[in-house]
């Protein structure tokens, strides 16, 4: 097991843009852990609630009750759901990370380019073209469910079945989202199958 994952509490930091479902994905990740009997926490950092502005979310998954309400400052896992952030807030993305931090990036860039931009030559890095999966499956750049599949594969902090269960429950509860459930379950599986670990 990766050093970053071999501890009772795993801390995840998400970077995305408003309107792409990053907050929802972070909530689904912790919810999926909670329905498996673990403790979970997802805390969005709200800015001005505008579409397109950078969004940061902290997620913790733990074997024990979680007391702290501090945002995650030294993440074990960093998830980037919008590739354009690599160019605009790379300092924010790598803040508090070290050589053990695992990066999961939604991008069509080759891994070398991601490594070079972020300055992470040796970190564990997983790449998934989640935006393309989302466009293929339901025609909109909402990559969150494909990214969740990638997170399950890359880290194992939640399993694919609990994510399926969580996504099914939340989509079925919403009259707006219900019709998009099959496409999102497909995106989840594709994210799981198509994410790859960079050399």
């Amino acid at each position: 097991m990766a050093v970053a994952l071999n501890k009772p509490t795993i801390e995840v930091r998400w970077h995305g843009r408003g309107g792409q479902g990053t907050v929802t994905a972070a909530k689904m990740l912790s919810s999926a852990a909670i329905i498996r009997g673990k403790y979970g926490q997802a805390m969005p950092e709200f800015g001005l609630e505008r579409s397109g502005t950078p969004v940061k979310v902290s997620t913790r998954i733990s074997e024990n009750p979680i007391n702290t309400r501090a945002p995650v400052e030294e993440p074990d896992i960093v998830i980037i759901t919008d590739p354009s952030l690599l160019f605009t807030i790379k300092d924010v993305i790598v803040k508090g990370t070290d050589e053990n931090t695992i990066f999961i990036v939604n991008t069509n860039f080759p891994p070398e380019k991601v490594r070079q931009i972020l300055g992470i030559p040796n970190n564990e890095l997983w790449i998934v073209n989640a935006s393309q999966i989302a466009l293929d499956e339901f025609g909109r750049n909402i990559p969150n469910t494909a990214v969740l599949g990638a997170v399950a594969k890359a880290t194992g902090i939640v399993d694919l079945d609990s994510l399926k269960q969580e996504i099914t429950e939340s989509f079925e509860a919403s009259s707006k989202l219900r019709a998009l459930l099959p496409q999102n379950l497909k995106a989840l599986e594709r994210g799981y199958n198509e994410v790859y670990k960079a050399d």
């Binding site: 909530k27 912790s30 909670i34 403790y39 979970g40 926490q41 997802a42 805390m43 969005p44 009750p65």
Partner: peptide, 10 residues
Amino acid sequence: GYIVSHSIEN
């Protein structure tokens, strides 16, 4: 607000 109102937990 937000810290509790909009955060997921058990």
